[in-house]
Amino acid sequence: MGKQAYITLKLFATLGKFTPDSSDNYPVESGTSVRNLIAGLKIPEEKAKLIFIDGVKGELDSIINGGERIGIFPPVGGG
């Protein structure tokens, strides 16, 4: 089991409603994946289309160590 770590979490657009109160200092287990993070937040996986970790595109399987700034964007297609 990894030790407790903290991330900054930003959920955009329709995902905003899943934002936890502690989004600026959100506790995660070090070594967990983005997939586990969004499952814990009850975000449907297909809605987490764009994942950014410290400003770089990540994946559902990307590992979180703590200290990261994570942004998640749903698909957006309006014009």
Partner: peptide
């Protein structure tokens, strides 16, 4: 941005926002 074309939805968050 959207994943592979064949798996991408046709519309996004604009349908609710």
């Amino acid at each position: 941005i959207y994943g592979e074309a064949e798996n991408a939805p046709n519309k996004g968050a604009e349908t609710s926002l």
